[in-house]
Simulated assay, not measured.
Amino acid sequence: MSKSPKRPSIIASFGALSADINAAAPTAAEQPPVAPPTPASRVGAGVIGVAHRAISDIRSERDRLQAMLDSGGSGFVEIDPALVDPSPFPDRLPDDSDADYRQFRESFAAEGQKVPIQVRTHPDAAGRYQVIYGHRRLRAAQDLGRKVRALVFDMSDRDLVVSQGIENASRQDLSWIERALFAARMEAAEIKPRDIKAALSIDDAELAKMRAVYRVVPVDVVEMIGRAPRIGRPRWGEFAKLLAGNQALETVRKTLSDARDRGDSNDRFQLALSALVSVSPDPAEEVEVLDGSGVRLGRLRVTPKELKLTADTARGAAFAAFVQGQLPALMERFEALEQTK
């Protein structure tokens, strides 16, 4: 989708960042003095809130904005972290340990906030915001009692999840299930499949594999397991197949509830998988169907969900047709027997 040359870009909406975005970003030596930001710091709804804006447009504006910030631009506002709510579409699961965050917070305290977070105006609460990305910076500012520097946008739900997806695609530490879970949340928000694939840089085959997991494994089970960074798609696929094939969901939930404070998320995944394997249904029981003389007519396969009669001979096929014709009478006998219990 091509952009109208008259429509302002994100960067042009920040007074001090209104330099020509089509020109190459200046080097440190060439950079002119930056004028103070204008009072209007919030981007108009027509800039990025358009429901059908192309993914390439969003990614391009993000990259251009980052380039201007890296070269010393301004345009952010300072916000009380208490006024910023989480994104309605979480894209990260909690870390197994707070050690990395504590190290980040120490650096944040010593060096200050170098890059502003991005927020949108809250669609339902006047004077409040929702974070697009920069969750750790927001948390650190809140912990340290500081205001957080932020770029403020008016943004639709669709553009919010796509923007988060673009940001996530550049991260190297997202686990497979975090990416799959975010795809699920975009799908739940009625984001088109082509936009989900573009946001996460995946193809049809990978999206299909994600769907095979997140359409079977409930979100609460994924959240109880956690990030599981060492668990990739093949093992999550195995987990989903086992879960779809039996009635063990409550067993898995109980196992994970009991293991809430034991081990890390990789360990919890293994515990849940072991619980599934332990209660998987026995292999189907198959018996021979013999006539009164002991001649085999076919095979009867019985599982908790299936009753299958396979004929091996012409006489076996005739017997199968006879059984089919007797089903109404058998059902009457079954119901009469139930009433006597």
Rank of each mutant, 00 (worst) to 15 (best):
E111I: 01
E106W: 04
V115H: 05
D124F: 12
I48S: 08
P90R: 07
G44V: 00
K147Y: 07
Q130H: 03
M68K: 11
Q118A: 14
V84C: 10
D91V: 02
D96N: 11
F89C: 08
P123T: 05
R139W: 02
D80S: 12
A54W: 05
S60K: 12
R137H: 13
I132G: 06
P88I: 05
L93I: 09
A125I: 13
D100V: 04
L65D: 00
E61Y: 01
P94I: 06
R136Y: 09
Y101P: 02
P90Y: 05
A150T: 05
E78D: 14
D70I: 02
R128Q: 10
F89T: 07
E61F: 00
Y129V: 06
D91N: 12
A99V: 11
K147V: 07
A82W: 07
E106S: 12
Q66K: 03
M68A: 15
A141M: 07
F104W: 04
R149F: 02
A99L: 04
A125S: 07
Q142F: 13
K147R: 15
A110P: 00
A51D: 11
Q118R: 14
M68T: 02
G145M: 09
Y101L: 02
R136L: 11
P94G: 02
T121A: 07
R64Y: 00
V131H: 01
D124K: 13
G72K: 11
A67Y: 03
D85M: 10
R146G: 03
F89M: 12
P94M: 04
V115N: 06
D143K: 09
Q103I: 13
G134D: 06
V47N: 05
M68C: 03
S60G: 11
A45M: 07
G75M: 11
P94R: 10
I58S: 08
F89E: 05
R92I: 05
E106P: 00
S107M: 08
R62C: 04
R120C: 07
R59K: 11
L138K: 05
V50A: 14
L138F: 04
A82L: 14
E106T: 13
A109P: 03
E111M: 09
A141R: 07
I48Y: 03
A125Q: 12
V115F: 12
D57Q: 12
G46C: 01
G49F: 06
R53F: 00
L69N: 00
I117F: 00
F76K: 01
G72D: 08
V47P: 07
V115R: 13
H122F: 08
I132Q: 04
Q118L: 15
S71A: 15
S71C: 14
R149Q: 15
G44K: 02
A45V: 13
P123L: 05
Q103N: 08
S97Y: 08
A140P: 10
V115A: 02
D100P: 00
